[in-house]
Amino acid sequence: MKRSPLVMVLSMSTCVALSACGRGALPPGAVEAAAVPPPGLDTPEGVANFWSSNCAGCHGADGQLGAARPLDDPLWWRTMPDAQVVETVAVGLGRLMPGFSARAKGGPYIAYANLGDAEIELVVKGLRARWGTPGEPAAAGAAVRLGDAARGASVFANACASCHANGTAASVTDPMFLANITDQGLWSAVVFGRPDLGKAATTLSPGEVADVVAHLAAMRPAWASAAALDPAAPSKPATGDSTP
């Protein structure tokens, strides 16, 4: 009598342990989940899924009409070499475009999918297949060059001011606006325009583009210098405000 509860407990635990073994090595409910692997990044569906979970928020559900520039833009793809796009997606661009690889540091979000460069390459190939033209451009085409700011001022007055008057909501010379955008972003905005918002690609010469970008970059407040916007710069985005 004295030992019977103990014996009972022991024998019952043996039963439970045995039946647990019978369940195999998977938790309840895991079997069905594991049976359907999600489409990989080497398939169009996989890349489309990746886009809607990671990029659609800013660049638009279908690659246009998002808050940030469209990627459904064949001209843009015809100019951008894969290596540059991969680098942008990996480490981000400025403070507003987050990086998605393990190399990107300190974004204000929990990145579930910290990708390797090989995976990002698959994504970029998939996006090019979706929105671009086949064949990769030469690396030199997309390099941002800063020209002469003084000459840029007159280019701006002639080619931009009609749409981007100072002091209006459409201003692009507002120091607050310039503090939030990189030279790369300015360059893309001029060269490719925003076809989804009715602004066509530029008709300016590469030299004039370089000048007008230099003109805008020169008006950026000192504390938000190009170096501070550089995601590779040591200061973390979250603490960027404190950089003098």
Binding site: G57, C58, G60, A61
Partner: peptide, 9 residues
Amino acid sequence: MDAWSSLPT
């Protein structure tokens, strides 16, 4: 949680 990157404006 992932609205920031997935829900378009």
